[in-house]
């Protein structure tokens, strides 16, 4: 056996929730720490080991010129780069700025906006560097994170489905809340991986995993209207966690 593979965890514009999912692994965390060397993870330890790293987990979106330089540096130092969470994979909630005037925000929010160095857009890691794997969600699914790290250790393909959340509702035996109760749900256009958590508790999926590998969002929007969802609410539900991804990186889907 050679030396243990090294893992680095990096934070960009984000709430830290996805990194905390790693700490939340509890039982598995000890086993993971026994197989890999955690080389850079400020949320867990001040000790830092210089790169290169075998695996980098990147949380957060790129929102400043400094971020752009840093994501390139991380890419150069990482054998595998794994983007984790809606911010790192789709720009996050903060990508709402992409559809607004960032100068206006700067002037309204900050007393001295000239001190700010920020970009007009919030973008995912993949907009700047090649990304090897993406774990979706706000936050990511803990089991998916453990499975991915385990898969990388074993040299197998991680189980990261591209199909809809409906697959997971059906597998766990959840009765479709849209069909049986008329609850608006983004499940049919949202990527699986959460285990269909929200519909199991009677709440419509709000798309935090972003779009499935194939979607027909206009057809679902027609259905949401039939279910008496207002145009404002339809706009909001698609604009929350994965606005850039649901928009296909272009137009706002609710327009």
């Amino acid at each position: 056996m050679g030396t243990a593979p090294t893992l680095a965890v990096w934070k960009f514009a984000s709430c830290d929730g996805c990194q905390l999912s790693l700490l939340d692994c509890e039982d598995e965390l000890l086993a993971i720490a026994g197989r890999i060397r955690i080389a850079h993870f400020p949320e867990a330890s001040r000790a830092t080991v210089e790169g290169p790293y075998d695996v980098s987990l990147v949380e957060g979106s790129v929102t400043t010129p400094g971020d752009v330089a840093r994501i390139h540096r991380i890419r150069e130092q990482s054998r595998l780069l794994v983007a984790i969470g809606a911010c790192a994979t789709a720009g996050g909630i903060q990508a709402l700025r992409n559809f607004a005037d960032a100068d206006q925000f700067r002037s309204v929010v900050y007393a001295r906006p000239e001190y700010l160095s920020t970009l007009d857009t919030s973008t995912p890691a993949s907009a700047h560097v090649p990304v090897d794997l993406e774990l979706h969600g706000c936050p990511i699914d803990r089991r998916q994170l453990v499975d991915t790290l385990t898969a990388l250790l074993a040299g197998r393909k991680p189980d990261l489905p591209g199909h809809s959340v409906c697959f997971e509702c059906k597998a766990r035996g959840t009765t479709c809340i849209t069909v049986a109760r008329g609850v608006p749900c983004l499940g049919p256009v949202t990527r699986a991986g959460c285990g269909a958590l929200c519909p199991a508790y009677g709440r419509g999926c709000f798309g935090c995993f972003g779009p499935a590998a194939v979607t027909n969002t206009p057809a679902l929007v027609d259905r949401l209207r039939e279910l008496d969802m207002t145009e404002t609410d339809i706009g909001r539900v698609f604009r929350t966690f994965n606005v850039l991804a649901f928009a296909g990186g272009g137009d706002d889907p609710s327009q």
């Binding site: 086993a31 197989r35 385990t150 074993a154 409906c166 049919p188 979607t215």
Partner: peptide
């Protein structure tokens, strides 16, 4: 929607895939 609901509620649709699971150790 390409969501797959029809195939999963269909009483004759039978297709499967395999999923591999490994432990951390």
């Amino acid at each position: 929607l390409s969501c797959g609901n029809c195939t999963m509620v269909c009483p004759t649709c039978f297709c499967t895939t395999v999923e591999d699971v490994t432990d951390v150790a």
